[in-house]
Structures are given as C-alpha cells and as structure tokens.
C-alpha cells in the first residue's frame, strides 16, 4: 500500500545522505516535490503516480548532488572527511581531531548559515552557546548568533544540518540537545515560539549538546 508521507521521507533521506546537499537544500527540494505532486494530482493522477512523476522531474539524487557539489565543493569534501572519521570510532583520537575540525568548520560556515535562516521576529541581540559535552577535547563551545533564529528548533536544525548529521548518520550515535532558559526551565527541542524572549531565552542561554549511544548519554570526558 503506497503511503505518500513514507515515500517522501524515503526520498528526502536519499538527498540528505549526499555529502554536497545541506539540510536546508533538502527542505527546499521537498517543498518543490510537494508543489509538483499537488499540481499533478489536480490533473487527475493518483497519489503514487503523482509522486513518481514529480520525483522523476526533480531528477535522481546522485545527479542533483553532483550539481550541488560543483557550487560547494569544500562542504562536500569536509563531510566526506567526517564520514570517514566517524566510521572509525575505535580511533578515538581521530574523533577528537574531527571535533576540533568541526569547531573550525562551523566558524567558517556561520556566514552561510546566517543567510539561510530567517531573522528572529522579535529581534533579540544575544548569543546561544552550544556546548558539546561528550568527546570534546577541552573547550569546544560553539557560538551561534541567537537573533538569527526564530525558534530553538531552527538553531538545532541549523547546527545539525551543518555538523552533526554526518557524524550521527555514519555511526550508531545520536545527539541530545538541552536548552535551558534563565529560569532553569528546559525548552522542548522542537518547540516553536513567537520569539525566543517569550520562551524565557535571553542572551547568554546555554544549549548543551551531548552525544548519546544506545539511548545513554556518553560521559563528559572533560
């Protein structure tokens, strides 16, 4: 039995696996796919046919990925290195080198990030600190400008699509994100709010990132 949402998820996964395609690129392609499916369905195609035709018109993931790589070769290369690093967890020192490289890469990608996200509706001039607990060789804090994001989910998505996805996808690891506001309340990861200020998140809020394996948070190695 054809399930449209499952089919779309599978389709997205094929694009998300590509080294040259970012999370935001997959989102943009998904919007296109859904527009196309709707239009085809309005012309009388059944859901499954509409999905197949729409996906076919967008092109094979590998071919689209090659075009993305042409405009962003550095990004694809860095992701490949991380896949390689993450696929050798026995070499813990490589992971440490990897995370230092992540810190460096994140800095160099922030300009890109800032262009991709919408400005916070109720602008809040502050920063959220992404603190990575496990596997971090010393102070591996990442600073993301809080006023560029509209919700905590966006902060996490942006960070994940940049750095964590490739690490997590390649190994059996997951990430756990904890954002606390200044009142000590934990903000649910996928919550949306009109402004971060409304959620009690003020400049200086701390977002902790931990690596989890088999549902267990790995110990802080600092």
């Amino acid at each position: 039995m054809f399930e449209l949402e499952h089919a779309i998820e599978d389709w997205k996964r094929r694009f998300a696996q590509l080294d040259s395609v970012r999370g935001a690129d997959v989102d943009e392609l998904e919007v296109h796919l859904r527009d196309s499916i709707l239009e085809l369905a309005s012309k009388g195609l059944i859901e499954e046919e509409a999905f197949c035709v729409a996906a076919g018109r967008l092109g094979a993931a590998a071919a689209v990925g090659r075009e993305f790589e042409k405009i962003n070769p550095g990004y694809a290369w860095v992701r490949r290195v991380f896949h390689w690093l993450a696929s050798a967890p026995a070499f813990a020192f490589l992971n440490i080198i990897g995370f230092c490289a992540i810190a460096w890469m994140l800095e160099s990608q922030i300009d890109e990030l800032e262009r991709e996200v919408r400005p916070l509706r109720a602008a809040l001039d502050g920063q959220v600190v992404l603190e990575q607990r496990a596997f971090s060789p010393g102070p591996c804090n990442y600073l993301l400008p809080l006023n560029q994001y509209e919700s905590f989910g966006e902060v996490v998505d942006a960070f994940e699509s940049l750095v964590m996805n490739q690490y997590v996808a390649a190994g059996s690891y997951g990430t756990k994100w904890v954002l606390e506001n200044q009142r000590g309340e934990v903000i649910p990861p996928k919550s949306r709010f009109a402004s971060l200020g409304d959620a009690g998140i003020l400049p200086g809020a701390v977002l902790r990132v931990a690596i989890v394996k088999d549902g267990r948070v790995l110990p802080d190695d600092r």
């Binding site: 690129d25 943009e28 392609l29 296109h32 196309s36 018109r57 967008l58 092109g59 071919a63 689209v64 075009e67 993305f68 042409k70 405009i71 962003n72 262009r115």
Partner: peptide, 13 residues
C-alpha cells in the same frame, strides 16, 4: 531537470 535549478539559484545567490 527540475532539481538542477536549485544549484543554479544558489550559485547566483
């Protein structure tokens, strides 16, 4: 090929 439009848009940007 519709997917090819997006790398073009990103390059122009």
């Amino acid at each position: 090929s519709e997917g090819m439009l997006y790398p073009v848009l990103h390059r122009l940007e």
